[in-house]
């Protein structure tokens, strides 16, 4: 594919969605908005939450205590930490921050039983928002995202249109971050375009 045909990106890296036509635009009264959060850092952090030193050391680096409630996440301006299991978290950081965060965590946890794995390039994050975002998710996912049970701060791991995803809700618009394997990203992006067509889709860069 001719690179000149691709939309100009600020970063020089490649994304699994680069080969798709992601021309910004679409319906003004769109029901859903799609955006790719390119190259954000993603670390898998594991450790024993009953170990006080583990919780203290990680909170020094992250700025808050790791979420211990299943299927929730916590965030500040720099880091989002998603509960993945009783001893496993995803730490999502700003683009380019992953190596320094990995280093900081490893230094802070030197004397603590832990593991930090950088999985930044394993997956990408598609941000889905808009008034009809829930309806689109409901077309391909069995997890209940109705606001009576699912709100900002909640997260889950499940299948969306048969693709394995980690999803968390950021705000009341609603906005969802959908983390998906790089190899499934273009499929899921196309599925979201198709599932959102009836509501109108606007693509943002």
């Amino acid at each position: 594919m001719d690179d000149a045909a691709l939309p100009k990106q600020k970063d020089s890296g490649t994304s699994p969605l680069d080969k798709l036509i992601k021309v910004p635009g679409g319906a003004k009264d769109a029901g859903i908005f799609l955006k790719e959060c390119r190259h954000s850092g993603k670390l898998i952090l594991r450790g024993d939450p009953s170990d006080d030193l583990f919780i203290k050391s990680t909170s020094k680096v992250l700025g808050y205590k790791l979420p211990l409630t299943p299927n929730t996440f916590l965030k500040n301006s720099e880091y989002t930490s998603v509960w993945l299991g009783p001893n496993e978290w995803l730490v999502n950081s700003l683009p380019g921050d992953d190596s320094s965060l990995e280093n900081d965590l490893n230094i802070a946890l030197t004397d603590v039983h832990h593991s930090v794995t950088n999985v930044s390039d394993n997956s990408t994050i598609i941000q889905l928002s808009g008034p009809n975002a829930r309806s689109v998710i409901m077309k391909g996912c069995a997890v209940d995202v109705h606001p009576r049970v699912f709100n900002p701060g909640d997260a889950f791991q499940s299948n969306l249109a048969a693709a394995s995803v980690i999803m968390w809700q950021l705000n009341l618009i609603p906005t969802f971050n959908i983390m998906v394997r790089a190899s499934f990203a273009s499929y899921l992006w196309k599925w979201l375009l198709d599932a959102g067509a009836e509501f109108g889709v606007q693509i943002r860069l």
């Binding site: 993945l84 299991g85 496993e88 889950f156 791991q157 299948n159 394995s164």
Partner: peptide
């Protein structure tokens, strides 16, 4: 095992 979820 909850393969697609928490993998426990």
């Amino acid at each position: 095992v909850h393969t697609s979820g928490c993998r426990r």
